[in-house]
């Protein structure tokens, strides 16, 4: 599974002819040096350019707003609202300092976000793994429909469930509580986790757990010692994605949370007041919201890539 591991086959691998060709940097379609370029070569070169430009545009589209947010969070009030965009300025930590001092300290919001998103993602992964495993291994009629029904509950717009959930939560006394938010986030994270994990488990050959069963394992032991370690990338991928979904939630938090459970996105929205918008602090919160998720993504990038492309567990 680890990408850093180099296979040490006892049979020495020879550099095959295809590798030699690939080595010249023109791809396998490259014509030998001195030969006129084929139309195929020409068009593949052009398509590479097109792809490169599109990627660059997409990258700018994604990064520039984030970068601008990061820069703005270190600007003072005049710089941030200046009519001409300021790229060079005297950086200040005032915005961050202001967020953590005064009557409306950001600390509790961060804590609420960490708790609600973290616990809900963890629960989603644990329950999703169990349900996904069951779904992947069960042979029954209408399994496909069941799987689709599960993921289809994820497709309903949040607005559609907010009101009924609000009534249920009020009855259960879950309004303005972290458990309430965790439950609310599970409504969209759990179907997703089940669906994703079942795809990962389906990739693990059934003979691996059969082999463990014959070796003396119970089902649970086989699941824990053989299947789970092989789906590590799936577990990490699912956890991170669930974490991001829950962390970014605004719609549920704005309805269900109160002073004891308000999350970071709520704090951001509170800076948009009728008397004006504190852009400096808003971009600082934005940075605080985005940076941890980016770091989490970077930290597990290796598993995310293999996880999102699946097929990482066949042992070949």
């Amino acid at each position: 599974m680890s990408t850093s591991m180099t296979p040490r086959s006892s049979v020495p691998r020879q550099a095959g002819p295809d590798q030699a060709v690939r080595g010249n940097g023109h791809g396998i379609l490259a014509a030998p040096p001195g030969m006129p370029q084929s139309p195929l070569e020409e068009s593949s070169r052009r398509s590479r350019w097109v792809v490169g430009i599109l990627l660059a545009v997409a990258l700018l589209w994604t990064l520039v707003p984030l970068l601008w947010m990061l820069l703005s969070s270190f600007k003072n009030r005049t710089d941030v609202t200046s009519a001409t965009p300021q790229v060079l300025f005297a950086p200040t930590l005032d915005n961050y300092r202001n967020l953590f001092t005064g009557s409306n300290n950001l600390g509790p919001y961060i804590w609420h976000s960490v708790l609600a998103a973290g616990i809900s993602a963890l629960l989603a992964v644990c329950l999703g793994a169990l349900a996904g495993y069951g779904l992947a291994r069960t042979q029954m009629r209408g399994k496909k429909h069941l799987a689709f029904w599960i993921i289809s509950t994820r497709m309903a717009p949040i607005a559609a469930v907010v009101v009924p959930l609000f009534l249920i939560f009020r009855g259960l006394g879950l309004i303005d509580s972290i458990p309430g938010l965790v439950l609310a986030y599970l409504t969209f994270n759990l179907p997703f986790a089940i669906w994703l994990m079942s795809a990962f488990f389906a990739e693990v050959p059934a003979s691996l757990e059969e082999s463990a069963l014959v070796a003396g394992c119970t089902r649970w032991q086989a699941f824990r010692t053989v299947i789970l370690p092989l789906t590590k990338s799936g577990l990490v991928t699912t956890f991170v994605l669930c974490l991001v979904f829950a962390w970014n939630d605004y719609a549920f938090a704005v309805v269900f949370s109160g002073p004891n459970s308000q999350t970071l996105p709520i704090a951001a929205s509170q800076l948009v007041t009728q008397t004006g918008i504190d852009w400096g602090q808003l971009t600082a919160i934005g940075t605080i919201v985005v940076v941890p998720m980016m770091l989490a993504g970077l930290a597990v990038r290796r598993w995310l890539v293999t996880g999102l492309t699946l097929g990482a567990v066949t042992g070949e």
């Binding site: 050959p205 003979s207 059969e210 082999s211 463990a212 053989v226 092989l230 042992g315």
Partner: peptide, 10 residues
């Protein structure tokens, strides 16, 4: 049991 695909734990 020896399986056709060996079923070695990767």
């Amino acid at each position: 049991m020896v399986f056709q695909n060996y079923a070695l734990y990767p």
